[in-house]
């Protein structure tokens, strides 16, 4: 079974999680809890933000868009960080699960970045007076969105998936320079976008009655992101197993039915 999947059983600590069977068992145990937590916390955070959190003294109810926009923005950046970590594992340690996870993070990260951009637009129009401006924060987040899309396209552009993984990993790591630019753009340059309200070093410049629903919604989104990526990676592991089983079957009995279903891939 394992040999059919083609995982090298090196027995080294890092490659313990490269064993797809191990990953399927572990993730299968975690996934229901993760999903339940994601749904509960997201519903609590967004419901609290929409119906119970106070309106801002100058922005009024439009401030409620924050409870969607800010968690989506945090996930857009930290999702990219996860993609970069997978890329290092893939390039340096040739970790086979990291390859699959990187492929699956890409579209999800792009989706959350699109959500961040869209809700930012919906917030900017009534408050700033513009759907979009080319300031450093907005532009760098748009670049992040294009990096995700580039990664999604690049990892699928090669006939040999391994070459796609390598190329995608290099693109993802080059794009990491954009993360500090996004974070500090509001401090380094004049931007229309306001600076961060919540920082690691200082006290938040926000009432507690707004901070709580924001943090809960952010944790909910984070769990949702993790659950989606894990579910997609599980599916990818199963699909790779299907391909190698079909390939082994085609090789053993020379069945032409199986070969026709088979994408050209060296597993």
């Amino acid at each position: 079974m394992r040999s059919a999947v083609g995982t090298p059983q090196t027995g080294r600590s890092l490659h313990r999680f490269a064993n797809p069977g191990q990953f399927l068992r572990l993730s299968g145990a975690v996934l229901p809890w993760l999903t339940a937590g994601a749904i509960a916390l997201t519903a609590l955070g967004l419901g609290w933000g929409l119906f119970f959190a106070p309106a801002d003294w100058q922005q009024g109810d439009a401030v409620r868009i924050m409870y969607v926009h800010v968690p989506a923005a945090w996930l857009a950046s930290s999702g990219y960080l996860a993609l970069a970590v997978c890329s290092v594992l893939s390039l340096v340690w040739r970790h086979p699960l990291a390859d699959l996870a990187a492929v699956e993070i890409g579209p999800v990260g792009a989706g959350f970045t699109a959500l961040c951009l869209a809700t930012g637009s919906l917030w900017g129009k009534p408050m700033w007076g513009a759907w979009w401006v080319w300031d450093a924060r907005l532009t760098s987040v748009l670049v992040l969105f294009f990096l995700y899309l580039g990664h999604v396209a690049l990892v699928r552009a090669f006939d040999d998936p391994t070459r796609g993984y390598r190329a995608g990993a290099i693109l993802a790591l080059v794009g990491v320079v954009n993360l500090p630019i996004i974070k500090f753009s509001v401090d380094w340059w004049n931007t229309l976008h306001q600076p961060a309200s919540i920082t690691l070093t200082g006290a938040p410049t926000m009432a507690l009655s707004m901070l709580w629903p924001l943090l809960i919604a952010a944790i909910g989104y984070m769990l949702a992101f993790a659950a989606i990526v894990i579910a997609r990676t599980r599916a990818a592991v199963l699909e790779r197993r299907i391909r190698s089983l079909l390939m082994a079957r085609a090789a053993s009995d020379g069945g032409e039915a199986a070969t026709s279903m088979l994408p050209q891939e060296g597993v």
Binding site: D56, W57, V63, G129, M206
Partner: peptide, 18 residues
């Protein structure tokens, strides 16, 4: 030809501001 409002990073309930 265009005026945009720039708000700061402080979020405060109306009652607190009052």
């Amino acid at each position: 030809s265009e005026v945009l409002a720039k708000h700061d990073e402080t979020y405060m309930p109306k009652e607190v501001a009052d």
